[in-house]
């Protein structure tokens, strides 16, 4: 079972993006940071993959490594049949037309000195797509599509807009060159719930309108569930569980997924909420635990978890888990410590 962890990959001729055995490591003074260790996933055209996990799990690093910003330490990233990791910088620059990124901080991701129209037109200008007039028309169309009035906004600078509006402008810029894949790195976690809903709806609209394939990175499981066709849960640089959202959330098989799901605050005072508190701290990525990386905080951990790294294995239709003792099976005899805690009632 401890294998490549690629059981969940689909036939390469159907996939638009295929990431295999991705490894990202950073040398630091304290040693090597194992940010992403052997992650594989793929995307069908038009699919949205949600990448979830706590901060420090390597989900943003994964997103950037797919963009080759910077190039991963190891592994392969194939977009539309072309290997990105072996491209020259010049080729890569051209290929970036087909992949775009939306960042977490909507204000920091727009240049404060440039006008909105210039910001949105920038990718068109870099690639000299269309004449000036055509570019101008395209910018108007894009801004209108994301719900910003081009007449009011074009000549203004980002600081005159709210966070939500800045994120709309970012989205307009990202779809300007009609890319195939968009990587959204926590695009709504800096926004109010009310604005978050607007942006999530907008992303769905844009996906439909421009036929986008998306990687959606977030720490909020409810948000990820809302937008994704497939969800991958990450912990400390590894993938724990992959599956379609409705199935994954109804029947989480990995103890970590289950703990994550239970910690979402429910907007309902009567909800009987059982929070599975995760004991301990996230171990350091400088020296991750042997075997299964979640074992140090896992209530079901056994001997074998320290020795063998579990690979992703199918446990249902399109549902894969990397766990020696998934929740779909009865607990291994002694549950190490009771970490299930009822939320204290008021």
């Amino acid at each position: 079972m401890a294998g490549s962890g690629s059981a969940h990959l689909r036939s390469p001729e159907h996939t638009l993006l295929r990431v295999e055995n991705l490894v990202v490591e950073f040398p630091t003074k304290g040693g090597k940071v194992h940010a992403v260790s052997n992650i594989s996933f793929d995307l069908l055209p038009g699919e949205t993959l949600g990448l979830v996990g706590e901060s420090g799990c390597g989900k943003s690093t994964t997103g950037r490594a797919v963009m080759q910003l910077p190039k991963p330490t190891n592994g392969s990233v194939v977009l539309d049949g072309r290997e990105l990791t072996e491209m020259s910088n010049q080729e890569l620059r051209r290929t970036r037309l087909q992949m775009q990124m939306i960042f977490q901080d909507p204000i920091s991701s727009l240049n404060p000195r440039r006008k909105v129209a210039d910001i949105v037109a920038e990718p068109l200008r870099i690639w000299k797509i269309g004449s000036d007039a055509e570019q101008k028309a395209k910018v108007s169309e894009l801004l209108t599509a994301v719900g910003i009035d081009p007449q009011v906004a074009s000549e203004r600078r980002p600081h005159e807009f709210s966070g939500g509006q800045c994120q709309r402008i970012s989205i307009a810029r990202a779809v300007a060159t009609e890319p195939k894949v968009i990587i959204c790195d926590e695009p709504v976690s800096a926004l109010d719930v009310s604005v978050q809903a607007q942006i999530l709806n907008l992303l769905e609209d844009m996906k439909e309108r421009y036929g986008l394939t998306m990687i959606f990175i977030a720490h909020d499981l409810a948000v990820v569930k809302n937008i994704s066709d497939r969800v991958a849960v990450m912990y400390l640089g590894r993938m724990c569980e992959v599956g379609p959202p409705d199935e994954l959330y109804a029947n989480p098989a990995h103890p970590y997924t289950s703990a994550l799901i239970s910690s979402i605050p429910l907007p309902d005072p009567d909800a009987e909420q059982r929070v599975e508190l995760l004991g301990g701290e996230l171990p350091s990525p400088l020296d991750p635990p042997s075997g299964c990386r979640f074992r140090t905080r896992c209530p079901r951990a056994q001997e074998i978890c320290a020795q063998a790294t579990p690979g992703l294995a199918a446990i249902g239709p399109d549902h894969y888990v990397a766990c020696h003792f998934p929740l779909t099976e009865p607990a291994p005899v002694p549950v190490a410590q009771p970490v299930l805690a009822d939320r204290p009632a008021d």
Partner: peptide, 12 residues
């Protein structure tokens, strides 16, 4: 800043 990364991602 992220807008610099964004420009890199655009292939500038």
């Amino acid at each position: 800043r992220e807008f610099v990364h964004a420009a890199e991602a655009m292939g500038a």
